[in-house]
């Protein structure tokens, strides 16, 4: 497969020091765009965010901040 990648900054920011790998953000994201990396830390895997905030609100250790994406700022 050939493809090009487009660089973009994630607007769901995970504080890796705080993240305990509980997976709740991955479960509740309506768009299913979050995932756990090899070190069991959450990250934004797909650039399809609706900035609706369940991930941030439901995180038990306040490790997530959702920013308004650039074009909407």
């Amino acid at each position: 497969m050939t493809s090009v990648t487009k660089r973009t900054s994630p607007n769901v920011i995970v504080d890796r020091d705080k993240c305990i790998g509980c997976d709740i953000c991955v479960q509740v994201c309506p768009m299913g765009i979050l995932a756990m990396d090899k070190e069991k830390k959450a990250y934004m895997k797909y650039n399809e965010c609706w900035y609706c905030l369940p991930c941030e609100v439901d995180c038990p250790v306040d490790a997530i901040t959702v920013e308004i994406p650039y074009l909407v700022r």
Partner: peptide, 12 residues
Amino acid sequence: KAHIRRSGAIAM
């Protein structure tokens, strides 16, 4: 399709 804890038009 998502998770019923936070799905649909009024997830929040």
